[in-house]
Design a protein around this nucleic acid. Structure first.
Lengths: 209, 209, 209, 209
DNA sequence: AATGAATGAGCTTTCATTCAT
DNA sequence: TATGAATGAAAGCTCATTCAT
């Protein structure tokens, strides 16, 4: 749709994000989104062809934002190991700020036939390429295995997702670092790596406080 | 949910599983499920109160099945390290056989107010307790860190989910083992461990197995 | 649509006919049709895919009915001249009974892309073929010109339509006969042909009584 | 309807005419008309109160144009028979030039409550009076029946309409003359009169013209 | 006066649920 | 008990109309 006023387009997206994060797709009514965004229902359809496209735009927007945040740094020069730490930190922070995105990202599905579905595929591919690229940089610096960087990327994202999704906010400090350690060094020899975390906020929250 | 003929109840569940795996909740119509199961639409309502309950029953059934498969072995005696390897292997196989479950498991959401929602929470808790327990066994045997077994459990499940979900089948041989390695030893020193993935079972002896 | 209960299908069609005759397409709401037919709105969609198809079915049904009434007699043996008289009579009567059809017939248009649009074309072609055939029979019996039977058919239907549509009911007796005379002998020498009508009801109604 | 710039008013009317001729009332959107006329949507409402009035103005405009073309000649002195021939010729030509009018004219319906509906009734009455008047002139000159000039008028218009509407352009030569013959002399003795249709103007002298 | 983005009433359509058979 | 036609509440979507610019 020809977005006339970009600001309003984002206003709608933001309202939708909050609702789609709390409720399932079919539980969110266009009326609700409109009311939440403070616009008329018809306006939604000026900016997005239909409910599905609004939903896709939302997911794409989220991925895009995260991608753009990370891209500049990862693509640039620098120590790959530090880049990885920063990257994880960044995602954790992004989720802290936009917790609903965590819910949205996992609802990406083989939906209909919308044209903008292709756009989503693109951003997603772009995103995974970025993560894979980061891991390749590590491998090039001999900091990790050069085998299956793609699987490693999936694993990394899986860890982050799995932990953040089921750990209630606010998350403890050093969570990002803990994730880094697990990904790089594994849980088997995690004792020494976790030492600095065991005294921090993680242990508290994880043990039910 | 006065299940009259249990066989028919499962028939319905199975039909529903296939549809819910391929399409989103709101895209699956009760008509479709009925047609797929070869029963009349009204019959669905003899076995499940409504669409939501059918959906929950489906997820619970899947989790339960996986839980029961794993429980006997994990709870029993034996080498914790071997148990973990077997456990991962088991999940990978389960997903190989019931790929739709992979989709279903991540759709567990803060749904409505259904009474059987509690049942789902229970199975899920039960399931995570099982995984956490396994990791504790490892820690007791001094095979891994004793800190944050719950976070480690989330990470493990996250890795598995992340990889299986986005890796098209057929999966490479020894995928389960690769996951085990990553989880236990991390990606940093993964080079030697990964050599066998996709090339057959070469590196098994290298790690003393 | 798989018409389950044909009786109900006609019930709906009949209700729709009355409404479409009095109001324009966009002025008739599906709610109205449902209420008029004494069924629920959803039922309409069991029998007809959408509003357009319901509308087309209606027109087709009307044409079909008129066609079938006339076909048997025209196709059979007999005096062509008498057949023509009977035919006109028949249409006039049909319109008397189903005045709404008069309105519907002229709304046949190059509408959407519905598949049943083809069906409509068929019935219409069938119908005009019937009239043309009748005129050819007259020509074969040397009762009229053999030239342009198709144009003559169009003219005949045009006369009937033009008169009936703008003449308020109840129509005078012998109207059909007057039409026959005009079509066959023209208005120039109409005086003697109309003699029997001038004393009937036509003159009364036409002159404003 | 405070028409500010009459030229623009006609521009809109012309754009609307083309669209309403090809599509049904509810299929034509104000957006379409505006786009077609090259003006903004809001402008339409400066010239016409609402969609209905725009539609009525269009029909009235068409009828008015046809009326004005014909009026001067019919009302003036001259041979009634020749006037009739000219009249039919004129309508055929008018339709040839503005085929959409043929579609519009038949969509005059018991529409809403618009005030300008009365105006339409007026033009229509005016129009039929003109035709009826012409036929009365013929009767006065003893060239046709003096009975039911109103019915004859309806029949004449019906013939023209019926033929033009369903005969694809380009129409055969002398179509107007053929219509004249049918109306005046009927189809029964049409054989000699019709011979020239499509074969050129042969039979003119035969009828003393 | 002209514009066209915003509006929202009201329409079509869907589909979970019911219930007479 | 199983059925599937009927239901109608609820949703998505449209588009004539308005009005700030």
């Amino acid at each position: 749709m020809r977005t006339c006023d970009p600001k309003r387009g984002l206003l709608i997206l933001d309202a939708a994000a909050q609702l789609f994060a709390k409720h399932r797709y079919h539980e969110v009514r266009m009326d609700d989104i409109a009311a939440h965004a403070g616009v008329a229902k018809g306006t939604l359809y000026r900016y997005y062809k239909d409910k599905e496209e609004l939903y896709l735009a939302l997911t794409i927007h989220g991925l895009q934002g995260l991608y753009e945040e990370a891209h500049g740094q990862i693509a640039g020069p620098g120590d790959p190991d530090q880049k990885l730490r920063d990257f994880i930190e960044r995602i954790v922070r992004y989720y802290e700020q936009y917790p609903y995105f965590l819910e949205l990202i996992q609802r990406i599905e083989s939906s209909g036939s919308s044209t903008s579905l292709a756009a989503l595929q693109d951003v997603r591919a772009q995103w995974f390429e970025l993560v894979t690229d980061l891991i390749k940089q590590l491998a090039d610096a001999d900091l990790c295995s050069a085998e299956h960087p793609d699987l490693a990327a999936l694993a990394l994202v899986g860890i982050i997702r799995g932990i953040l999704r089921f750990t209630p906010q606010p998350w403890p400090d050093h969570l990002a670092e803990w994730i880094y350690d697990l990904f790089m060094h594994g849980h088997a020899r995690g004792e020494q790596n976790l030492s600095h975390v065991g005294n921090g906020a993680i242990a508290q929250s994880a043990r039910g406080k």
